[in-house]
């Protein structure tokens, strides 16, 4: 009853499919029953059907391949086609390397060597990895070795003269004799800076401005004297103030006042200089 209902639900298409399925099954079953079983072949007949070799083909013309003697000689002269066993003898260089490798082999063949080799490889690999990471991140590790503190003193434009190597007395005298009061004032100011540096009052660095040196000095007569010398130097050197002998005397007096204070002496009276510019 249930199957009838299902068939009803399936409709005409469903009935046709079912019919085809049943007919196909019955046909296959009938064919299986009708097929005859294969008969066994007797041994004499099997020997009769053994395949015999074919006769050689004497009808098809085959071209005879002829090798060019010149080409053969040419190939034979090439290095790649010399099938000769290499000489067993080794030169001194190869013997040296063979000895090195043998020594290394012996070295790492010991228990200690094996441990060293095992962890050494890891250590080298780790070092290479760390180096690569630091390099990629552009990390400056030179500070780890105690060089970071001097960084400011390393990367200077060294075009200027070193104040610790200049013979100020001679050069100032030459500038005064030549009437170049501007240069003489500059040299005198550099000499003041040198004295202050030597005395430990300022820390000389070429990138510092005069104002920076002034702030390094403690309040007092020395700072006041240096301020006056600085002001006069700047008017001359940066302000292009053209000096006469009297003004130059004033500038030099200010510079000598700083040096005298550093030496613990009273400020001297200005020395005589040539009056002609």
């Amino acid at each position: 009853m249930v199957e009838k209902l299902k068939l009803k639900k399936a409709g005409p298409g469903g009935c046709l499919a079912w019919c085809l399925l049943v007919v196909g099954y019955l046909a296959l079953a009938g064919a299986a029953q009708a097929a005859p079983a294969p008969k066994p072949v007797p041994p004499a007949a099997a020997a009769e059907f053994r395949p015999r070799p074919l006769p050689p083909d004497r009808i098809t013309p085959l071209p005879t391949r002829r090798l060019d003697a010149e080409r053969l000689r040419e190939l034979a002269s090439q290095r790649d086609f010399r099938y000769v066993e290499p000489s067993a003898r080794t030169d001194a260089w190869e013997a040296f390397w063979a000895r090195i490798w043998r020594w290394l082999g012996n070295l790492f063949d010991t228990p200690t060597g094996r441990v060293t080799w095992k962890y050494g490889v890891y250590a080298v690999a780790l070092a290479v990895l760390v180096y690569a990471v630091l390099k990629l991140m552009q990390v400056d590790v030179t500070g780890a070795f105690g060089r970071a503190g001097r960084r400011g003193q390393l990367e200077y434009d060294t075009a200027g003269e070193n104040i610790h190597e200049v013979d100020f007395r001679t050069r100032i005298a030459e500038a005064e004799a030549a009437g170049n009061f501007r240069l003489a004032t500059r040299l005198g100011y550099l000499e003041v800076l040198k004295h202050l540096t030597d005395g430990g009052f300022i820390q000389w660095q070429p990138d510092k401005t005069n104002h920076a040196y002034l702030t390094e000095l403690a309040a007092g007569p020395l700072r006041d004297a240096f301020r006056a010398a600085t002001r006069e130097f700047e008017y001359v050197w940066y302000g292009d103030l053209r000096l006469n002998a009297a003004l130059y005397q004033q500038a030099r007096a200010s510079q000598r006042a700083v040096s005298s204070l550093l030496a613990g002496r009273p400020a001297p009276v200005s020395a005589a200089i040539p009056q002609s510019a």
């Binding site: 552009q138 434009d157 200027g160």
Partner: peptide, 20 residues
């Protein structure tokens, strides 16, 4: 790295000698 333009400008000023 956390750097600022002001840091770089300061570095540059430290590298160049003041005309004197």
């Amino acid at each position: 790295e956390g750097g600022t333009p002001d840091d770089v400008v300061k570095q540059i000023m430290q590298q160049i000698e003041v005309p004197r």
